[in-house]
Design a protein around this nucleic acid. Sequence first.
DNA 1: CTCGAAATTTACAGCGCTGGAATTTGCTTG
DNA 2: CAAGCAAATTCCAGCGCTGTAAATTTCGAG
Lengths: 333, 333
Amino acid sequence: MGVRLQDVADLAGVSMKTVSNVVRNYEHVSPATRERVQEAIAELGYRPNLMGRRLATGRTGLLALAFSNVTVPYFAELSRAVSAAAGALGYRVLLEETDGTLAGERAVIASSEAGMVDGILFQPSMMSSMEISRHRGDLPIVILGEGAAPLPVDRVMIDNVAAARDATKHLIALGRSRIGFAGHESGELSATSIQRMMGYQQALEEHGILPDPHLLFPSAEISPSGAVQGVGAALDAGARVDGLVCRDDLAAIGALRALHERGFRVPEDVAVTGWDNIELSRVTFPSITTIAPDLDRLAQRAVEMLVERVGGFTGVGRHELVDYELLVRESAP
Amino acid sequence: MGVRLQDVADLAGVSMKTVSNVVRNYEHVSPATRERVQEAIAELGYRPNLMGRRLATGRTGLLALAFSNVTVPYFAELSRAVSAAAGALGYRVLLEETDGTLAGERAVIASSEAGMVDGILFQPSMMSSMEISRHRGDLPIVILGEGAAPLPVDRVMIDNVAAARDATKHLIALGRSRIGFAGHESGELSATSIQRMMGYQQALEEHGILPDPHLLFPSAEISPSGAVQGVGAALDAGARVDGLVCRDDLAAIGALRALHERGFRVPEDVAVTGWDNIELSRVTFPSITTIAPDLDRLAQRAVEMLVERVGGFTGVGRHELVDYELLVRESAP
DNA sequence: CTCGAAATTTACAGCGCTGGAATTTGCTTG
DNA sequence: CAAGCAAATTCCAGCGCTGTAAATTTCGAG
């Protein structure tokens, strides 16, 4: 099924290779020949078969983007940004969901089939980048987010610690002093949560506030509902805060509901900050003050670095930070 | 770079084809040989090269899923459901975003390269299924959602008209009589919007309520912010409703904010329904009464039908309806 | 006109794998 | 013990395309 290069070549009366050259815009083809071939292509409706090309070149033109779950708005937005950046460089993106499980993440790294993608962009939830760099096969990998340790693999991230410090300081500047942290895992903490909590504690300490472990409100599940329950349970148990730094916008949305249900006003009684600047954080009531990473830049750098590796670059692991911004909105004005 | 089938064959002292048979679990391989080959595979760390396999078989094992934009939660959730259903049948899913533009959708259908995917699952926003079925090349397509006309291409959807009628009747049963519709396009309506508005109007008429064009609140942009503005502008212009059927949950979230900003209480003053049952609709305050399509079933049937076509089925276009449910929550109890 | 360099085009050998036919091996059975 | 048959394995010919190198044509200078 399908028109082959040879068919076009026959019709145009040239060799297969010349047709190939025309298709790929090789420069040394005479205008006359080029036109004749193009007519033949149009007449036959020829479209190059990618599998053939890829077998021959060894490149697939596909990059994998692995993270836990597209239904997390941050990841959906990341996915768009990465697709755009990859598209600009002639690559397409294959999403790989890991469900945030260790098994899922290992499966991505160890994928039993080769040749599907040219490289992987990986935002790990559970695996340490240590393990990733060890487990790595021959496929280039760039890590998104995650820890700060220098490792033999490229990484792009924002400075989570500094950003968390900024968010917390913003609440302190608002005159809040009983500031909680919400939305982190109740079990083993992800690297992301660890860094954000670290920044939160640093800010408190810098301002002479003693971090109070009773003001940490973990979620049994990293989801808005998880935060509703986590924050709700803590409030019901008598915890009182006037500021709340949330691990991400979804946790903030959950916190908003939990607070609202119990009659606390945001921001009057409790000021709340989120993280990620997902589209919805502008539309909730109140809208959410949040850390907005420069997602486009993050995606662009990550793709660029990965493409360099695909192209053969084998230097040491690079570690780049990307800008972020604290977007002040209604929940912590 | 890479261990080849031949390398494994050499090490195990068998032919390439036997190794291939082992890799693919062909039944007629003696246990002894199988084991020897498997040892060789393990020792060499062999992983089959997909491009080679695919060139040989003509199948890529990839299905495209095309829709406007992953950052729309409904599509993200659809994407998960489709990935799961496809995975169960041995396929993986490549996302194609069209940005909801005609050009984007045409690009998906007319993709200039062949052989990338075996088939397409397509949820159109702008293209009519008429045009899709005409434009179709040799690639099997299954349409998700969209119009009701019987066409020579498979389609799976929920009964949008009936569901909209149910949502509207629910508001009527709550004693509401000035019921508006919000969140549809302010320009050309999508097929989806048309059907949902149709159901809304039918329900009103069935109950002797004359549909009032002043109670239609379109959004300049299909997004929560679009709905905030659309509904907000209408309210500011003096429109008064006691019930609001929203085209989707994001519009409902936007409507919630627009109403809240102006001091209307939900559901006391205005009862609101959404559509899609996105995860967040459970967590907003108030949580949103919504139409919940059976997404898993939808995805499963769509993938099954597409895989049948990939397998060679060429019968007439089938048209399947999938169940939905009205989930009653706080916004319209 | 002739010659060499540059421009254009072609031949050919795979890329790594699989389908199907052909061959060999291993058992049964009369 | 040979024939007969099924199971196991191998051979071979591509799938559609591209890289390399070699062949051919073109063109301007002398």
